[in-house]
């Protein structure tokens, strides 16, 4: 295979982190990649260990074949402005700003929030999951309108971190 780029490795690490796998082992001509949860390390959080054998010391040149960008932009591809953080959808679903149709919205633009502040609701087939801000700061923009379908990882709310 082509020499893996930094980005390829990062995406593997990220995917591993999001999975519930114990370990991942990928071996090709140019790379051996092993990543594992490390239960003996005494760390409380899941720790990942990336170990690139026969590491690529050469500068990785841009791949001769570059995948074209898909034409159809999905909601998940919105670019978050610099210095801002986005609260993202945990899965596909319907976005709601209020816990119940007749309640006030969870948050308004200008509100100060903390990590644990609930900012919206994602519904999948009548199963409602509140979404937390996960960072503290000021609400700058609500990116999705009430009742709209959102995709996995789509930015929902913009926060300016404090």
């Amino acid at each position: 295979m082509d020499k893996p780029s930094q980005q390829d490795i990062e995406s593997l690490v990220k995917l591993f982190g999001e999975s519930d796998w114990k370990e991942m082992h990928i071996k090709t001509d140019t790379l051996e990649f092993f990543i594992s949860e490390n239960p003996g390390s005494g760390l409380q959080n899941r720790s990942v260990q990336a170990n690139v054998v026969k590491s690529q010391t050469e500068e990785i040149k841009s791949s001769p074949v570059v995948a074209e960008k898909p034409e159809k932009k999905s909601g998940a591809e919105y670019e978050v402005p610099k210095g801002m953080l986005a609260v993202r959808a945990p899965n596909l679903g319907t976005f709601y700003r209020r816990p119940k149709p007749d309640s006030d919205p969870y948050v308004e633009v200008g509100d100060e929030v903390t990590e644990s502040t609930e900012v919206c609701l994602i519904e999948v087939m009548k199963l409602f999951t509140p979404v937390k801000a996960e960072s503290s700061g000021e609400i700058i923009e609500i990116l999705v309108s009430d009742g709209e379908m959102v995709e996995f990882n789509q930015p929902l709310v913009l926060i300016k971190p404090s």
Partner: peptide
């Protein structure tokens, strides 16, 4: 995804999600 009229991203990579 290049051929479909519309693509929606359901969830992360693992099939069970």
């Amino acid at each position: 995804t290049r051929m479909a009229d519309k693509v929606v991203v359901l969830g992360p990579a693992p099939s069970k999600a």
